[in-house]
Design a protein around this nucleic acid. Structure first.
Length: 643
RNA sequence: GCCCACGUAACUCAGUGGUAGAGUACCUCCUUGGUAAGGAGGAAGCCAUCGGUUCAAGUCCGAUCGUGGGCUCCA
């Protein structure tokens, strides 16, 4: 990426490629007379060089710290500061592994006989503050690789030794702060006094080098900011995310439950959640019929033989549940829908004229997920994919991909998602299918994306062994990314199942198969939706669109009349006729995030009207029940309007 | 699966070795009140499960199951 933009106090500024020492860059900018420079580092690798070498006669303003790259440097330095504090407090008992800056903060991995717990945070933070206030300088030095190896070996830092052994460089850079010397590429802030606002957040386990067969380390996560205000804003954002947590809202709004007795990762949809899901499914089916898809239904189990043919019994077995025996034949629960759709394909002979065939199914699959991976609705063991398989000729591939992406965009947009990160994954090292086919499919994916003028990044070699794919991550209200949509070309299954069609030349050919899911799974998608909307669903999706409530018992009859009328006209309305104060009823409806409250007092009963209170507290003038039905229909139509 | 933490009433939580608690929800009664909690009373727990230590275990120890934060893996 990155150029370094260096600007100085007189306004001059220039970009340099990464790797240029800032001191050299400055020399170019500063004509020799004026040595008082202010730095703005946009993307920096060598800030410390500058700090170290300009210290004597340059004032370095801490402007960089507010920039993104500056924050990264600050956080990286804070990770080091934490390691220093830990070393000072716990000495040789602790070995240090690695400690980078990450999005929103930093972490450092430690190896300690008894892992850290949050109770240790106060002590470590206090030590960090103490070191920081002493403005202990952070200095950069270099060593040859053998020197560095000997140095860290002597200190007993086996993790650093291992890192060094794998490095190719002849010389490495070290950063020294007090007694703590760390192997590090840098850059860092000039001294610890720059680190003023920081906080340790949580401990977690992590494998050394991310390898589950190796040593488990204790990771401490923390964050640092340029000022207290930014830290507070960050903490508030975390708090906001916690409030939106779909597990919490799912319970509060009565959407779904997961129970020990049923089993982990298995979702029970409660009435409100089931209604929400039903609305999404109906919408999904309508959109698919409208876009020339046909709906399929297929069973949940199949003979093991099927999974042998498909190859899942081989390469996917660790995700599949154990076989069960039925009439002395083994059957297995399905982890995927594809072989069944192929079964439908094989029920009839096919000609090139049939294509494209677009078959979709809300197919429930079961996959074994390790207990530690399970997470609310977002990672479960039984889930329903909004699956589809498209069979086509090579010349139709690009159009089909294009159509899938546009349908995807249309559907996602309806749910308020219009920010995506798109990844195109290309051929991995191990693959099936011919090079020519891979090229054809990869180009088709690429051209479809280009045709739609979508930005995407390429993940080289990250495709599945059976074909290239496009993954789309959606961004929610809090700018968090979620992997939902996936579009995969498959050269494997048509081969394994010997699928064919008769071409215009009268010969048999193999169709191209595309797998795709737009929402991914209903479980995950609804989990994301809950957090995206913070449980306050738009009217068309709200399980309860309106709640009618009386002020005194005298209006109960009129309430019942309106209730029955609106129900019969398709409004999802509930009633609250309890002997409670209006305040109390409003509060409850409000907490259930019901979009409209219909308030009925003496006035409304006499006039035959309803007073409408919106979820945001706003009141609409009294209207007839009919007018309210129209209002609901109009609003839903607007929300569903095709873009 | 791995590391750490946690598991007490339907929910949110207090209870650190000596008779199981609060608020909310629920039920009953009073109250009929116009825009986010009216009042009184009542019922409700095998303290996740199993085992151990102890005169005595919700509390200490171990195992199992489950949840959370991560790691790894993924729709």
């Amino acid at each position: 990426m990155a150029n370094i933009t260096v600007s100085i106090a007189n306004g001059a500024s220039k970009s340099f490629p990464t790797g240029v020492r800032i001191i050299d860059a400055l020399a170019e900018l500063v004509s020799g007379k004026k040595r008082k420079a202010t730095l703005a580092v946009k993307a920096g690798e060598h800030l410390l060089d500058l700090a170290a070498e300009l210290h004597a006669d340059t004032t370095l303003e801490p402007v960089g710290v507010e920039s993104e790259a500056g924050l990264e440097i600050l956080r990286h330095s804070t990770a080091h500061l934490m390691a220093l504090a830990v070393k000072e407090l716990y000495g040789d008992e602790v070995k240090v592994a690695i400690g980078p800056a990450i999005e929103d903060g930093f972490y450092y991995d430690f190896d300690r006989p008894t892992p850290f717990t949050p109770e240790d945070f106060d002590r470590i933070e206090a030590k960090m503050a103490e070191i920081a206030s002493a403005a202990l300088p952070i200095t950069r030095s270099e060593m040859s690789k053998p020197e560095a190896l000997a140095f860290f070996a002597k200190q007993g830092e086996q993790y650093k030794v291992e890192l060094l052994e794998e490095m190719e460089a002849d010389t490495v850079s070290l950063y020294t702060q007090g007694n703590f010397v760390d192997l590090c590429r840098g850059p860092h802030v000039p001294d610890a006094s720059w680190i003023k606002v920081f906080k340790l957040l949580r401990v977690a386990g992590s494998y050394w080098r991310g390898d589950e067969h190796r040593q488990m380390l204790t990771r401490i996560y923390g964050t640092a900011f340029a000022n207290k205000k930014d830290l507070q804003a960050y903490l508030n954002r975390l708090e906001e995310a916690r409030k939106r947590d779909h597990r919490k809202l799912g319970k509060q709004l009565g959407l779904f439950t997961i129970q020990d007795q049923i089993g982990p990762g298995l979702i029970l949809w409660q009435p409100r959640g089931a209604l929400l899901r039903h609305l999404i499914e109906d919408y999904w089916k309508d959109e698919h019929y409208r876009n020339d898809y046909q709906l399929l239904y297929t069973p949940h189990i199949a003979r093991q033989d099927l999974w042998n043919t498909s190859g899942h019994a081989d390469f996917y077995s660790e995700n599949m549940y154990a076989p069960m025996e039925i009439d002395e034949v083994l059957y297995q629960l399905k982890p995927m829908n594809c072989p069944f759709h192929i079964g439908v394909y094989k029920a009839d002979p096919h000609s090139y004229r049939d294509f494209p065939i677009r078959w979709c199914e809300l197919g429930t699959v079961y996959r074994y997920e390790r207990t530690g991976a399970l997470h609310g609705l977002l990672r479960v063991r039984g889930f329903t994919q909004d699956d589809a398989h498209i069979f086509c000729r090579p010349d139709q591939l690009q159009d089909e991909i294009y159509n899938i992406i546009s349908l995807n965009q249309h559907i996602l947009k309806t749910f308020g998602f219009d920010q995506y990160d798109i990844y195109l994954s290309t051929r991995p090292e191990k693959y099936v299918g011919s090079d020519a086919n891979w090229e054809l499919a990869t180009q088709a994916l690429k051209q479809a994306l280009d045709r739609m003028q979508l930005d995407y990044s390429i993940d080289p070699g990250e495709g599945v062994f059976y074909g290239p794919k496009i993954d789309i991550k959606i961004k929610d209200q809090l700018n968090r990314s979620w992997q939902c949509s996936t579009i995969q070309v498959d050269f494997n299954l048509p081969e394994r199942f010997a699928m064919s069609y008769t071409g215009d030349d009268g010969a048999e050919h193999q169709p191209i198969m595309i797998h795709r899911a737009l929402m991914g799974s209903l479980e995950r998608f609804i989990g994301v939706l809950i957090e995206h909307y913070a449980g306050a669903f738009p009217l068309w999706l709200a399980p309860e669109q309106a709640r009618i409530m009386n002020i005194t018992d005298d209006q109960a009859e009129w309430c019942n009349e309106v209730y029955t009328q609106l129900r019969s006209q398709g409004v999802r309305i509930e009633k609250d006729l309890r002997n409670e104060k209006l305040n109390y009823k409003i509060r409850e409806a409000q907490m259930m995030k019901v979009p409209y409250m219909l308030i009925i007092g003496e006035r409304e009963r006499e006039d035959g009207t309803v007073t409408v209170r919106k979820r945001n507290g706003e009141n609409l003038p009294a209207m007839s029940p009919d007018a309210f039905v129209q209002l609901v229909r109009r609003e839903c139509d607007e929300q569903l309007r095709t873009v």
